[in-house]
């Protein structure tokens, strides 16, 4: 057996697989920590001016998203994501990073075609399928 007989199969031995356990561990720790931070924020808003638990959580989410946008602007969120993987990308903060990174990246093409036209190129799919699912199901609810 060799690479020349069946390249697609034999080449797998040369391709390092992702460190599954380490990646999962890092995603758990960072993702969990960010959620705990959001919980602390939600508690604070709940104890001050939020009128409902949902509103407190929305405030917390907005602050977390703002934090992610700030970290994207200074060029740090991509480093956090490289370390934490899904622990940073699969949260609302990751969506904020997707929007902000595309907006910042494409300012060189101007405010219309660049920032406006490209802002959703990385994060748009999640929003779009969320809207479609909620709208269609909402029409039949309850």
């Amino acid at each position: 057996m060799g690479l020349r007989t069946d390249y697609l199969r034999e080449v797998k031995a040369f391709q390092p697989s992702p460190p599954y356990a380490a990646n999962a561990g890092k995603a758990f720790l960072v993702g969990g920590a960010l959620c705990a931070l959001a919980q602390w924020l939600a508690n604070w808003y709940g104890g001050t001016f939020a009128t409902s638990a949902l509103e407190a959580h929305l405030w917390a989410s907005i602050v977390m998203a703002g934090l992610a946008i700030g970290l994207t602007a200074v060029g740090k969120y991509d480093d956090i994501s490289q370390f934490a993987g899904a622990g940073a990308t699969m949260l609302l903060t990751g969506l904020a990073n997707a929007l902000a990174s595309a907006a910042i990246e494409h300012r060189s093409e101007g405010w219309m075609a660049g920032v406006g036209g490209q802002m959703l190129k990385a994060g748009g799919a999640a929003i779009i399928y969320g809207v479609i699912a909620a709208y269609v199901l909402g029409l039949f609810w309850p």
Binding site: A24, C35, G85, A86, G87, G123
Partner: peptide, 29 residues
């Protein structure tokens, strides 16, 4: 509880990407 639940969702997403070969945009959606 927030830590464990949030971390768990991230782990599942990570495994879908690493093992299931999903794209990040697919998992997010």
């Amino acid at each position: 509880r927030a830590f464990l639940a949030g971390g768990l969702v991230c782990v599942i997403a990570q495994l879908l990407i690493d093992r299931g070969r999903w794209t990040p945009a697919g998992v997010a959606s």
